[in-house]
């Protein structure tokens, strides 16, 4: 769901060790990279390395059908052109539904396919979904190993709050990191009363730096990145001058990393 805000189509690259996704947004301003290691799944099997090209917008709609207690199983057969999702609730109390529909075509303008709902007090909750797979052109090269000049670690909820609040006031934000202060300031005030910098040094902030860094970014993207905040209690902002910002959320057995190209000049 976090990825679908940034990219509409992407390849899930599956191998024996993990599932990975890496894709740029349509504007080629941001890049999102996700990895979920095999141990992060209750059960994981990959007999053959294969890409699963998925319409993330559609996948997100399907995921909304799941409840928190549902266990989601993703399956793709060899040479298959569909991704099969099965939601199976262990609790009989929430088990009166059976959904089944086939889904073909990736035309975003086509309506969400109709589905059939059968109710029975005894049937386990069983949502059976097929999403057609597409062949995408994946970005197979990993992001080059980059040594960043600064790393700011802060609670992800604070980061979410900061970028959300600042997005109410302007379109861009400057992030400056010096030895003891990280300053996140808006650039485009709507009125003089709102023109004061919003120095943000919440509790739990750790600043590591080799060199002063000052970069300007589009707030819209940072707000979208911050939607991943529920995946991790902390977020890391890694920056060097004149290279993309890395916003990194690490979670058990995986991560989501978002890269954002800076504004040029000032």
């Amino acid at each position: 769901k976090s990825c679908s805000i940034l990219v509409t189509d992407a390849n899930f690259e599956c191998n024996e060790e993990n599932i990975m996704l890496q894709a740029m947004d349509n504007s080629h301003i941001a890049l999102v990279s996700v990895e979920i290691g095999a141990p992060g799944f209750t059960s994981y099997r990959c007999d053959r390395t294969m890409p699963l090209g998925v319409d993330l917008t559609s996948l997100t709609k399907v995921l909304r059908c799941a409840k928190d207690e549902n266990i989601c199983t993703l399956k793709a057969a060899d040479e298959a052109d569909v991704l099969n999702l099965v939601y199976d609730a262990k609790s009989a109390f929430f088990s009166p539904f059976f959904f089944a529909f086939m889904w073909h075509g990736r035309d975003a303008s086509s309506p969400f396919p109709p589905f059939f709902l059968l109710c029975s007090a005894l049937l386990p909750l069983f949502i059976h979904l097929n999403i057609s797979l597409s062949s995408q052109t994946p970005i197979t090269s990993s992001w080059p190993e980059t040594k960043y000049d600064t790393r700011v670690t802060l609670p992800s909820a604070e980061f979410t709050r900061i970028v959300r609040d600042l997005s109410q006031l302007g379109e861009h934000v400057r992030i400056e990191v010096s030895k003891e202060v990280v300053r996140i300031s808006k650039l485009k005030a709507k009125s003089s009363a709102e023109d004061e910098d919003n120095d943000s040094i919440p509790t739990g902030v750790v600043i590591e730096m080799n060199q002063h860094v000052s970069l300007t970014f589009s707030l819209k993207y940072l707000v979208n990145f911050s939607k991943s905040g529920s995946l991790s209690g902390e977020v890391q902002l890694l920056m060097s001058n004149d290279v993309p910002l890395l916003v990194a959320y690490d979670f058990t057995q995986g991560y989501i990393r978002c890269y954002l190209a800076p504004k040029i000049g000032d």
Binding site: H28, I29, L31, S141, P144, L187, P262, K263
Partner: peptide
């Protein structure tokens, strides 16, 4: 506003 750079311009061929 300052021009926006392109993320792909930071890629290096690997």
């Amino acid at each position: 506003p300052a021009p926006q750079s392109n993320i792909s311009s930071y890629f290096k061929s690997t």
